[in-house]
Amino acid sequence: MAAGSTICKVQLNIADMDRNYYETHEITIAQHPSETDERLMMRIVAFALHASDRLVITKGIGGEDEPDLWEKDYGGDIELWIDLGQVDEKRLRKACGRSEKVIVYTYNLKAASAWWRHNGGTFARFKNFEALHLHAEGIEKLHARTMRLSVTISDGELSLHSDDGDVTITQEQWR
């Protein structure tokens, strides 16, 4: 955790009809001083989409050798590596070499589209790589230091509910 990080506590109630996964997770997440509220909320969304007993939210922006989230097997090998934003080729190559599956979630359409147009062809050589764009207008309004969030996932669409409002998140598969 970086000095000056803000600690957020999240109670995340997940009802994922697509995976038949129903669980409540108590999450403590550090928000790096340079991390936006939108990006922190996207880390929570990525967690909800892949929630399991072994999925871990890592240091995020402050962890250079770690993704935003990962899931390791019981032997310590990385099964799933999840990053957010516009990942550079060197980082993606390293992630694909270390993990069985790599997923990059983008969330700022203008910047992400330019990144994908510039790098998408190069990234095609990575066979264990997936890129998805998350459309989540207004998600930052749900951010607080203490959050109680309910997530419903059905047909790839995620509905996020809190006392501060509701947000629907759709996924667009890019690769």
Rank of each mutant, 00 (worst) to 15 (best):
T24E: 10
I153P: 00
R54N: 04
G62A: 14
K59S: 11
S150A: 10
W70Y: 07
E137Q: 09
Q173S: 13
I27F: 04
E66G: 08
E100R: 12
C96S: 12
A124Q: 08
L92S: 06
A2V: 01
A30F: 10
T152E: 02
D18C: 10
V56R: 07
A114L: 13
S113N: 09
Q11C: 04
I139H: 07
R98I: 04
G85C: 01
V104C: 08
G138Q: 07
I82N: 01
E35I: 06
S5E: 05
T28C: 05
A30P: 13
E140I: 15
H50E: 04
S154I: 14
G156H: 10
I7N: 13
V167Y: 00
L80A: 10
K101T: 09
R148V: 02
I169Y: 05
T168Y: 15
S150G: 05
F123L: 05
N13M: 08
K127L: 09
N20Y: 11
D53P: 15
Q11D: 06
E100D: 06
R39D: 12
I103Q: 01
S34G: 15
D53Y: 14
D77N: 06
D16C: 13
V87K: 00
G97P: 00
Y107K: 11
L142W: 01
G4Q: 04
V10P: 03
A48G: 06
C96N: 02
L80W: 04
V104Q: 07
S113M: 04
E26W: 03
L160P: 02
E79Q: 06
E130P: 02
A131I: 05
E137F: 13
E64Q: 11
A2Q: 03
M1C: 15
I44C: 05
L49G: 02
R117C: 09
L49S: 02
G75L: 03
M17C: 15
T24A: 09
S159T: 10
A2N: 03
I29K: 01
M1L: 15
T24D: 03
A136E: 09
D73F: 12
R43T: 12
S162M: 07
T58Y: 02
W115Y: 08
W174R: 07
Q11F: 01
E140R: 01
V56W: 09
P33G: 07
N13S: 03
T36A: 12
T146L: 14
H161E: 10
V102G: 00
L158R: 02
R145Q: 14
